[in-house]
Each structure stands twice: as C-alpha cells, then as structure tokens.
C-alpha cells in the first residue's frame, strides 16, 4: 500500500533559520497523523509545503504519490487545507462561502448541490446557513473552514491547529468529526498544542522541534521506546528513609526522593528489571504497600523529548 502523505527529506530554510530540517515520514490511507511541537518548531511550514503554498528548499513532499513541487495542480484536487488563520469575505453568508469554493474546485450542477448538502450536513452548518461569516463564533468558523477544506471530497486533509481557541464541547465535536472522516477513508494530518486530544484521535504522532522530527510512530510505540526512563512510585507502611538509601545502591536507579511513606525514583531498565527490583525490595524486608511504574502520557513524552529551545 502506497502512502497518501509522504515527506522525503524535507527542508525549508528562511535565511539562516532552518524552519524544517530533514523531515521524513509517511501516513497511510485512513490514518490520523498528529503533528506535535512547540511554537516555531516547523509544523505550519511543513503543512504549508504539503498544501502547495510554499516550496521546499530541498527534498520533496508527496500527496497520493504526486509531488507538491512538480504537480501542485494535481495535488490540490486531492488535498484540503485548513489553515490556522481563517480569512473571510464581507457580505457573504456560510452557504454562499461554501458555494464559492465548490465552484472554485470546478464542481457544477448536481455535483455541487450534492457536495454542499453533504458538507452542511456533516459539519452541522445547516442551522446557520444564512448567517454572515463575520458574525460567527470561533467554533462555527472552524466548522465552516473544515467544510470548505472538504468541499471537493479530497482524499487528504491537512488541518493546522483546528482546535485552537475552541471550547471543550466544540473540541469534542471537532475530534468526533475528524475520527469520522478517518473512518470514511480520509487521510488526515493534524497539528495541535492540546496533546491529550491528539493522543485520543491520532493513529500516529510526530514530535517536531527546531525543524527536526524527534520521534514518529504510534503513541504506544513511542511510549514503549521511552520506557527506559520509567518513573516509579513506591509506598511503605513505615518511613521510606531506609528504603531510599537502599535504592541508591541498586543498579539502574537514580533521582531517588522520599517524603514520609512515599518514595519516588527513576528506573532506567525494562519491565523485567522492574519486576526484579520489586522482588528485591520485598526480599529486603521493606513493608511494601504499593509499587507503580507511572505510565507516560503524550504530554510526558513531549516534555521528555523536546528541550523547549527555539531558533
């Protein structure tokens, strides 16, 4: 199966700034790929290159096997882009706006009618069809923008911070819509700062910082890769002072801290090593109450991988 989105050694320089620096990944049909990174990491630039709005300095990006550099016209028929900022027209209502873009994508007659009805129904915009765009709430504008991006039924959707500024309900609804689109066979590349949300809706994530892709894959795979630094919490019936001193002498254990009956430390080993450590604590005679290896969230992984540096 050939990938629907493919980045091949993508580079984009703005003078001395390397906004995108050698990024490669693939996204397959029906997948939702989450693009995570701090501000200025190069997410938007990568997405704009995929949307044929910018040229890469080196490398290429392909949508459905077509190069964004060499065949932007063909790419545009297969891709819908929802930018972070959303420009509007004066004196235009929602349905007129969608109708204009349907026409711009060459939809005529019954095809256009069908596309408009589908988009209005999918995004729930029927209820505000005659409202001027400039009077819409942020959530409704995002829906309209999503509707505009999917009006020509593209195989690939590129959504740049779609949940930015939305209230919790609007976020949940947007997430539901994105999952629905993926189930319908669309390939979706989505960037967001709300990491928990991405973890819930994405099949794969890519963590980017300073233009470089630091990690890419399924969330659980990345979590697995990160497990060499497991954070362990232990609680005893007695004071943990003796245990903490004992732990400092154990292999793969570091950053030991204790507070009363609670003790925390970092364990640089695999799950088998964790089991051995648990047995050793028990055999050493400490009155063990709980032993938990803290599962890393996407947020933890993000914080662990990225340095917060900007360029």
């Amino acid at each position: 199966m050939s990938p629907m989105i493919e980045l091949r050694r993508l580079h984009r320089f703005f003078g001395a700034t390397r906004a995108v620096n050698d990024i490669s990944f693939e996204v397959f049909r029906g997948q939702v790929f989450g693009f995570i990174g701090p501000n200025g990491a190069g997410k938007t630039t990568s997405m704009r290159i995929l949307a044929t709005l910018e040229l890469p300095s080196y490398g290429d990006a392909l949508i459905d096997g077509l190069s964004v550099v060499n065949d932007p016209d063909l790419v545009r028929t297969r891709m819908g882009f929802m930018p972070d900022g959303f420009g509007t027209y004066a004196n235009v209502n929602c349905v007129e706006y969608l109708d204009f873009f349907a026409r711009s994508y060459g939809l005529a007659g019954s095809d256009r009618t069908r596309a408009l009805r589908h988009v209005l129904d999918f995004t729930g915009l029927e209820k505000i069809a005659s409202k001027p765009i400039r009077g819409l709430s942020k959530g409704m504008r995002q829906r309209l923008c999503l509707g505009r991006a999917m009006i020509h039924d593209p195989a690939v959707l590129i959504l740049d911070e779609p949940a930015n500024g939305l209230d919790p309900r609007a976020r949940i609804e947007l997430r539901r819509m994105i999952r629905q689109l993926a189930e319908d066979g669309k390939t979706i590349l989505v960037s967001s700062h709300i990491l928990t949300e991405l973890a819930e809706m994405c099949d794969q994530v890519g963590i980017i910082e300073r233009g470089q892709l630091l990690a890419v894959g399924r969330v659980d795979e990345i979590q697995k890769d990160m497990r060499k630094h497991t954070h362990v919490e232990v609680s005893l019936l007695d004071n943990c002072l003796a245990l903490s001193l004992w732990l400092r002498d154990q292999p793969n254990v570091s950053h030991v801290q204790f507070n009363g009956t609670q003790c925390e430390f970092r364990f640089d080993g695999n799950p088998q090593g964790q089991a051995e450590l648990l047995r050793a604590i028990s055999e050493a005679g400490y009155p063990l109450l709980t032993f938990s290896a803290k599962q890393q969230s996407l947020e933890d992984i993000f914080m662990q991988i990225t340095t917060g540096a900007i360029q």
């Binding site: 891709m79 930018p83 711009s104 994508y105 060459g106």
Partner: peptide, 16 residues
Amino acid sequence: AELEDGTFEILSISSL
C-alpha cells in the same frame, strides 16, 4: 483584500 485577509491562500490552492 484577498492578499491581506489571507483568503488568497485558500483560493490559490483551489482548482482556479
């Protein structure tokens, strides 16, 4: 206005 308001970009990636 198309260029200033950012509507041009989404127009430029249509089939027009």
